[in-house]
Design a binder for these strands. Sequence first.
DNA 1: GGCGTTGTTGGGGA
DNA 2: TTCCCCAACAACGC
Length: 282
Amino acid sequence: MPELPEVETITAKLRQILPHQKITQIKVLKDKSFGGDVDHIIGSKITDVSRRAKIIRFHLDNGLSLLTHLKMTGQLIYVDQDRRMGGGHPSADWVNDLPSKHTRIVYDLTGGARLFFNDQRIFGWMKVMTAEQIENQFAQLGPDINSPDLNLDYLVAALVRRRIPIKQAMMDNKVVCGLGNIYVCDALNLSQISPFRPANSLSEHELKTLLANSQQVIARGIELGGTTFDGKYVGVDGFAGGYQKEVVAYGRAGEKCYNCGSLISKEKLGGRGTYYCPNCQR
DNA sequence: GGCGTTGTTGGGGA
DNA sequence: TTCCCCAACAACGC
């Protein structure tokens, strides 16, 4: 479920909280959720937390890293020794339910704090990896949508031979990372470009507009702490994001397009729900 | 019981 | 080989 703004929000928070903390114990409640040997990282200290695409990386002082992908329903919830979530904020009222029936892994940290990995659908994972394995994992990825390395020339070159619909191309991690279904629908609506257009049919000017709007919706999503539908995404402190209040297309089928006043449609594209305005998105 | 769900991956066909 | 489509992963709510 989390897209880049959600993962970025979680990463930024964990980067404030976790460095210098030691992993004292790990309880794996669902084998499928954890890859590698817990004994290789128990006793190590977290030195940094970073993000690439939608993958969060915990850097450890023994040279290994712990990587996690939250996929659709993963959550990382930090609870300190006083059972406050997210390091000092008031806690969501379900803090006392942890570990819950969806908790897959529990990390005990320095001084009695704990990090919970919850994942309803069990698509997400956490894995112990070496630097070399991480390099391989990241090698095929295009630049992050919010990366300074991403520019119009790159996007034009990446899409020139792609005939798939522009929406699918923008969601392809080999082209650009971090633009998921919610934000890509909104970026296309703001750009007044149809999601069904072949990627290589867009003019350079259209791609420029789409890139700028994509960067803008992602930046806005980060500002608002992500998007929460159905309570599936929550931050490290257990609370929801705010972008769902500002969506321009996603989830608005039957409501008026903010560009032109026509009604937003919903159709399937590449197996995903696609919200767009048939009138002004051309 | 059926359908839909915010992400990724791999198999198979063209 | 590359490109592209689609099923699969699995659990929940409507």
